[in-house]
């Protein structure tokens, strides 16, 4: 199952102040640890909201409102995210709790959220994977 660890923005990140060297190194080490455990899917940092846009729909069925950043309430904004693929909720929590304080200054906040996934169910005969590919191709040639 997939979880997203969302790093909340702070006044500093919104002001475009770069994190300290120590923090950058700690995050790098943490991401490496995730990768070496085979659970890391993606990790990205976002630019401050001053370069962002907001598209809202105040009237159902109506035209959207487009507002340019920056946006207020830094702690409701996000500064980055890390997507992981793990076996259980508890494992996701264990990884989230190991993430370094993402900002320092007493404002660091990480939100852990589960990604919606359809129940993945598979039923299959005992055949070779390449025979499955071949069936796909046969099907394609029949429909050509």
């Amino acid at each position: 199952m997939r979880f997203m660890m969302i790093v909340k923005a702070t006044r500093h990140s919104e002001a475009g102040i770069k994190p300290t060297r120590e923090l950058v190194d700690a995050m790098k080490a943490y991401n490496e640890e995730l990768a070496k455990a085979g659970v890391l899917l993606a990790a990205e940092g976002l630019q401050p909201s001053s370069g962002g846009l907001r598209i809202s729909y105040p009237i159902p069925g109506g035209m959207p409102n487009v507002t340019a950043g920056p946006f207020e309430e830094a702690n409701e904004l996000i500064a980055g995210f890390t997507l992981i693929d793990v076996k259980s909720e508890e494992e996701a929590y264990e990884w989230a709790i190991r993430m370094p304080d993402p900002h320092g200054f007493g404002e660091g906040e990480i939100e852990l959220r589960q990604v919606f996934e359809a129940a993945e169910l598979i039923r299959d005969p005992r055949i070779l994977a390449m025979e499955a590919d071949l069936r796909d191709q046969i099907d394609m040639i029949n429909k050509k």
């Binding site: 598979i122 039923r123 299959d124 005969p125 005992r126 070779l128 994977a129 499955a132």
Partner: peptide, 10 residues
Amino acid sequence: YTATAGENWI
């Protein structure tokens, strides 16, 4: 991915 015996879902 491709193989499980019988009619079982896994």
